[in-house]
Amino acid sequence: MSITAPTGVLAGVGRFTPPRRYLPVLGTFALFIGMFGVGGIRYEGFADPQVFLTLLLDNAFLIVLAVGMTFVILTGGIDLSVGSNVALSTLIAARTLELGWPVVTVIGVVLLAGTLLGTAMGLLIHYFDIQPFIATLAGMFLARGLCYLISVDSIPIKNETFSAIAFGSITLPGGYYLGWTAVFALVIVGIAAYVLASTRFGRTVYALGGSEPSALLMGLPVAVTKVGVYAISGFCAALGGLLFALYTLSGYSLHAVGMELDAIAAVVIGGTLLTGGRGFVVGSLLGVLVLGTIQTFISFDGTLSSWWTRITIGVLVLVFVVLQRVLTRRS
């Protein structure tokens, strides 16, 4: 009988396979590592850690957008308004800074505006039972239109605090540096991962994606959660807008056109099911990094045209959607 325990342990080690639900994320991770590996072999300097850190910096705003989008998609919804929301946020920030408002107030106003837009769409979706696609499509046009009310032309941001944050970075051992905006984005990812995994709100988000009628009959706070995810997506879009304003140091109505689709693509590549209920924020982070790596590839190569980015994204999204189908069908 004394043999039982050790064999049990050994068998456990031998059998170790990651739970099914982590497979898509692990797939994305493997893809990302693979792409970096290939890049490192093909191009000189590609494997330098600074390339990776710059990748984070260049895509900080997209990471934040993808985080918000993950909440929405996990409930089975979609948010098409985030790109326009980013543009609106850059404009509000640029215009209010131009008017000389204090930086803290500016940030507060931008975040509030974005969150309100998200909340309004969430209320429409929940209480009037409007398709998320339609409600957020309306939000997308509305936000884009509001941009032109503020200014038709691009407004430069000359505020010193903004510039300081934009160019500021923390130095890592080995002389590498990581931009502040990237740090913000990673903190957001961490908070979101915690909320989704370990809070009642987070688990209700998954439950909603699993089956909304069931969630209702189980007595879960469906209304709060559903409106909540759109509010979070709106908040993340506004925060992404601030990061984008820092990245470009300008506010412009034509910023971030189609960026909502990049965010959705990143979430899908990150392994989140579009039907909801399955996926992780970390996956979305990896999704953004994969998208960013494609661009890095193209800039390192120099001979490839930039439209290869789009083609590769298209192929990747297709592959991942098909893989998800296969995985979920088998289980």
Partner: peptide
């Protein structure tokens, strides 16, 4: 009327999970 994508335990205790400082 449960949610298939969560674990058995989560389904049983959803909305009533034991928590400390908001953490499940």
């Amino acid at each position: 009327n449960l949610v298939p994508n969560l674990t058995v335990a989560e389904n049983m205790l959803l909305g009533r999970e034991p928590r400390r400082l908001g953490r499940i």
